[in-house]
Amino acid sequence: MVTAADVLDASDQARPTIDTIPLTVRVRRFNPEVSEDSWWDEWTVRCDPLERLVEVLHQIKWHHDGTLSFRRSCAHGVCGSDAMLINGRNQLACKVLAQDVAPRVTIEPIRGLSVLKDLIVDMEPFMDGYRSILPYLINDSGEPEKERRQSPEDRHRYDDTTKCILCAACTTSCPVFWGDEGYVGPAAIVNAHRFIFDSRDEAGRERMKILSEKTGVFRCRTTFNCTDACPRGIEVTKAIQEVKRAILFERF
């Protein structure tokens, strides 16, 4: 008879041994109930080189310091919850491998938004910018009998900007946004682009009006930080330039 213990033994034998590596994780901590200032904490853990940084953070939170706070939901690069400033670059903690940063990694909260605790920032100013550009399909021509059809070419026009997961990596890498939270930021413009260039949408002009205000696209200085930061590989600066051009040629 095969017992549960036998099964466990067998699986233990089948499991390849993992050569773990040491990784020193330096995290900028903040807790307004403890101190007005931020401070640095450092842990050295052993992990699988193919482990993702979000799992290393879990390891720290679950086994070393339960007070460490960070956001994550899907942990697979889709939900956009765990954007962090990792070694000075905005990245998703779930898309960085331990071996890419070993032996040492520095993690800070994304910049330009108020830190609530540790790596958790107040996303409201970011979401305000997003909401301001009417990020939903507007079509008042009446409901069609079936779906709203679109040619592959028309769909392709805005394909790149459909990939946004609202992680805020682009917006919080933008020096204009650091200086002025009122600027709608790259992510909001990307999502405006997604509807402005959608042939089924009818409110492109309203979005262009919103984006031609002082807080809109013309604040962009084309530093390309956003394009470098995007974990989805969206050509963010290109999308912003396309919106600027659309506004310009709308006038002529």
């Binding site: 002009r205 009006k209 031609s212 205000e213 709308e250 006038r251």
Partner: peptide, 21 residues
Amino acid sequence: AREAALGRGRPIGGFELWTWV
């Protein structure tokens, strides 16, 4: 109602566009 909500009265472009150009 929709035009009011979307601010159709505002022009596209304006000062920021023209200084940019």
